[in-house]
């Protein structure tokens, strides 16, 4: 006679959808926040919807809410986490690569050079950080 045990298992099974639902709630709230923020500062587009969503999920997962620690809850989130690379593969397979490669030289040069400049900046910052660490030691 262990009815509580049965209940606990049932509880755990049900909670997997809580993980997925929490994820959904974070994404929907984040999107609303992004749209409102974009509207408020007059950007004419959403700003940081995904960023707000990530922040919300991080807040929830770093919190002490009891259900967050349940394995089934974590499973509900990590399943979708593991679907990220497949979604990325699907996304790359739907890019307009043909037109991109046949686009004019201006576009290619502008795109490539701007990223390369960022890499140079990062490299400089990285070396600066290393030097600082070296000086401190």
């Amino acid at each position: 006679m262990e009815p509580p045990h049965v209940f606990r298992r049932l509880h755990d099974r049900k909670i997997m959808i809580y993980g997925v639902a929490t994820l959904a709630a974070c994404m929907l709230c984040g999107s609303v926040m992004g749209s409102v923020f974009g509207d408020l500062i007059g950007a004419g587009t959403e700003i940081g919807s995904v960023g707000f969503s990530i922040l919300l999920l991080t807040l929830v997962s770093n919190s002490r809410l009891p259900f967050v620690q349940k394995p089934a809850f974590v499973q509900g989130v990590t399943f979708w986490k593991s679907m990220f690379i497949p979604a990325v593969i699907a996304m790359t397979a739907t890019q307009d690569v043909l037109h991109m490669l046949s686009s004019s030289v201006v576009a290619i040069v502008a795109g490539v050079v701007s990223v390369s400049v960022s890499y140079l900046l990062l490299y400089g910052l990285h070396r600066l950080g290393e030097k600082k660490e070296g000086a401190e030691q």
Binding site: L57, V88, T94
Partner: peptide, 16 residues
């Protein structure tokens, strides 16, 4: 699967 809704959903999950 690669559209913005599912892609963003998995991306947010990836931040877990």
């Amino acid at each position: 699967l690669g559209g913005s809704t599912l892609r963003n959903f998995t991306l947010i999950a990836a931040s877990y």
